[in-house]
């Protein structure tokens, strides 16, 4: 069964979604590139790896991205809630390092509904909250011809079924392109169907 990619991406507005997997960052940047308004990226200050604006400038103009650094996860969540509730930014990306409870997840959902903006939690594998609207696992795929190929898979969906797509990034047009005949492609060894 093939589901239309465009019904799920860009993500449903006024909700908070989740992304995990090795390519979760590029998923977040690809989503940010679709936004008209600014994007706020919230993360903890102690994280040693950083996002590189020169690298993600192929997805989104770095001037449209603001970075907020919280001391710990509770500050990050409070900042994200403020940002979602104000509706001043189109997308709030929240980098999580610890699992969040149902209360925190639900608060984010309510804030997103009030502010009419979208939220995306980027989290390590297996740390999702039940309150999320959809959860995506994103993995890069090796391909001899193309070095942007990825597999995006919905692993949790509150209102719909679970599907997977193989996509690639077109840097010239700044668009996600869904690659057809997924059945004939090799699936990475670690990926679960």
């Amino acid at each position: 069964m093939s589901y239309d990619f465009s019904t799920y991406f860009p993500l449903q507005a006024k909700r908070v979604h989740e992304a995990c997997g090795p390519s979760a960052f590029s998923f977040a940047f690809a989503l940010a590139g679709q936004q008209q308004a600014s994007v706020l990226w919230v993360r903890e200050a102690w994280l040693s790896d950083q996002i590189n604006p020169v690298g993600f400038s192929q997805y989104i103009n770095p001037h449209h991205l603001l970075l907020a650094k919280g001391k710990d996860q509770s500050e990050v969540l409070a900042t994200a809630e403020d940002s979602l509730r104000s509706g001043a930014v189109g997308l709030t990306v929240i980098e999580l390092t610890k699992p969040i409870g149902l209360t925190a997840g639900r608060r984010l959902q309510l804030a997103a509904e009030t502010g009419k903006s979208t939220g995306l939690c980027v989290l390590p594998d297996g740390m999702g909250s039940n309150a999320a609207q959809t959860r995506w696992r994103c993995e890069p795929i090796f391909d001899a011809a193309d070095s942007t190929l990825q597999r995006w898979e919905i692993i949790k969906n509150k209102s719909g079924t679970l599907t997977a797509w193989t996509v690639r990034w077109n840097a010239e047009t700044r668009r996600i392109i869904v690659v057809s005949e997924t059945g004939e492609r090799p699936v990475p060894q670690g990926a679960s169907r």
Partner: peptide
């Protein structure tokens, strides 16, 4: 922003 060569998104 000018990227003369491809750069990673995460450092």
């Amino acid at each position: 922003w000018v990227a003369l060569r491809e750069r990673p998104i995460q450092l």
